[in-house]
Simulated assay, not measured.
Amino acid sequence: MTLSDSLSATNALASARRTLSTEIAALESLSNRLDSTFHQAVKLVLACSGRVVVTGIGKSGHIGRKMAATLASTGSPAFFMHGVEAIHGDLGMLTPQDVVIAISYSGTAEELITVLSVCKRMGIPIIAITGNPQSELAGSAQVHLNVHVEQEACPLNLAPTASTTATMALGDALAVACLEARGFGAEDFARSHPGGALGRRLLTHVRDIMRHGQALPIVQGTTPIPEALEEMSRKGMGMTIVVNNKEEPIGIFTDGDLRRLISKVGDIRHLSVSDGMSLGPRSVSADALAVEAASIMESNKLSQVVVVNKQGKLIGALHMHDLMAAKVI
């Protein structure tokens, strides 16, 4: 077979499907094999008053880094400790309050066996993840989670593929089970991801980005339209809010209202804002999430909303551009 034949679309797709089928079969076998030991692992993580320390070397180390990151971002404080670095000083990071998750598919990694001997002397609970229940690593742990696979996706049955997929999935299962047990919600997740899009969506409130004070365009219903236009131009929101003498918003006068009024009347210089304003402006609370305000604006095809307090008094306004600038949308 030539190189071009081996790279044909048919062969490439067939290879991909064999790989995925092998890994799917490994995951299904793992799912069917889960038993009370998984529950014991969850209880150890939940009872941990220190940190969950994940350790491994080689491909297991790469999986361990991801596992620790997933645990940490879902409410179980965790970090990764490389097995080799551990026996050259990083064991000093461990405390008796920690839980250690040691990953080695063979269960024979000498570095991890050394790490676990130290953990046992310190009284640190150990969760071992291996593909060999008879291994020394499995026997050293309080809880052993078996990720054995019948076949790697690698046609040589050498490169860790299905086994690493199974291990990663098991780490996800452990993190999610702990997340659910803790009642860890979207806002908790956002607090650990404040720099990301989810953090902005779940931590940004209307009060954080609304315009207020002197930045608000405000007029009375009796204000002549030319004066209202000056207020709109100064404040740059494409509208002005119309309030009564109780500081309650009773209407809104927008660029669109202006165009419609000119089309209907012609000369508008003698008119007041009340002659062309839209009544009952849509409002939101300052305590609402900015993403909720965005949803209201998008569903009602609005460019602006007013912000009111519990008494219905005007305290701010929000423009679609404010949401975009805050990267909420």
Results as ranks from 00 to 15, higher is better:
residue 118 V to G: 02
residue 273 V to G: 04
residue 67 M to L: 14
residue 111 E to W: 08
residue 214 Q to A: 14
residue 48 C to L: 06
residue 81 M to K: 00
residue 7 L to T: 11
residue 75 G to L: 05
residue 203 L to N: 00
residue 257 D to V: 02
residue 42 V to Q: 09
residue 37 T to A: 13
residue 146 N to F: 02
residue 109 A to C: 08
residue 30 L to N: 00
residue 39 H to C: 15
residue 59 K to C: 07
residue 293 A to R: 03
residue 219 V to A: 09
residue 48 C to N: 11
residue 279 L to D: 10
residue 265 V to R: 11
residue 138 A to I: 01
residue 279 L to V: 14
residue 66 K to Y: 01
residue 72 A to K: 03
residue 268 I to S: 08
residue 54 V to R: 01
residue 213 G to N: 07
residue 304 Q to V: 14
residue 54 V to P: 05
residue 175 A to K: 04
residue 142 Q to H: 13
residue 230 E to K: 14
residue 39 H to I: 13
residue 292 E to T: 14
residue 64 G to I: 08
residue 189 F to R: 04
residue 20 L to E: 02
residue 131 G to A: 03
residue 320 M to H: 11
residue 210 M to W: 03
residue 153 A to C: 09
residue 12 A to C: 10
residue 240 T to Y: 13
residue 237 M to D: 03
residue 224 P to R: 03
residue 120 K to T: 13
residue 135 S to T: 01
residue 56 G to I: 00
residue 128 A to K: 07
residue 301 K to D: 10
residue 235 K to Y: 08
residue 30 L to A: 02
residue 112 L to N: 01
residue 19 T to C: 15
residue 251 G to V: 11
residue 149 V to M: 01
residue 170 L to S: 01
residue 15 S to A: 13
residue 105 Y to F: 10
residue 316 G to F: 11
residue 305 V to W: 12
residue 79 F to S: 07
residue 238 G to Q: 02
residue 117 S to N: 11
residue 27 L to Y: 08
residue 78 A to G: 06
residue 252 I to K: 10
residue 249 P to D: 02
residue 207 R to C: 11
residue 312 G to W: 09
residue 241 I to P: 01
residue 38 F to T: 05
residue 29 S to I: 07
residue 151 Q to M: 06
residue 308 V to C: 06
residue 193 H to L: 07
residue 290 A to H: 10
residue 227 E to W: 08
residue 180 E to N: 15
residue 150 E to H: 13
residue 126 I to A: 10
residue 244 N to L: 06
residue 212 H to L: 09
residue 201 R to F: 02
residue 244 N to E: 12
residue 173 A to H: 04
residue 202 L to A: 08
residue 300 N to F: 15
residue 247 E to H: 14
residue 196 G to V: 06
residue 234 R to C: 02
residue 169 A to F: 03
residue 124 I to S: 07
residue 244 N to F: 12
residue 118 V to P: 02
residue 97 Q to A: 14
residue 158 L to E: 05
residue 47 A to R: 00
residue 65 R to E: 10
residue 115 V to D: 00
residue 38 F to L: 14
residue 27 L to D: 01
residue 229 L to A: 05
residue 279 L to N: 15
residue 11 N to T: 11
residue 256 G to K: 12
residue 192 S to H: 15
residue 1 M to R: 14
residue 194 P to V: 05
residue 303 S to G: 13
residue 27 L to T: 01
residue 296 I to P: 02
residue 75 G to N: 04
residue 289 L to T: 04
residue 25 A to G: 12
residue 122 M to L: 14
residue 187 E to P: 01
residue 163 S to Q: 07
residue 154 C to D: 11
residue 313 K to F: 07
residue 325 A to V: 10
residue 2 T to R: 11
residue 87 I to K: 11
residue 47 A to G: 12
residue 146 N to V: 09
residue 175 A to H: 06
residue 182 R to G: 04
residue 298 E to N: 15
residue 176 V to F: 13
residue 204 T to M: 05
residue 55 T to C: 12
residue 237 M to H: 12
residue 128 A to G: 04
residue 299 S to Y: 13
residue 150 E to S: 12
residue 63 I to H: 04
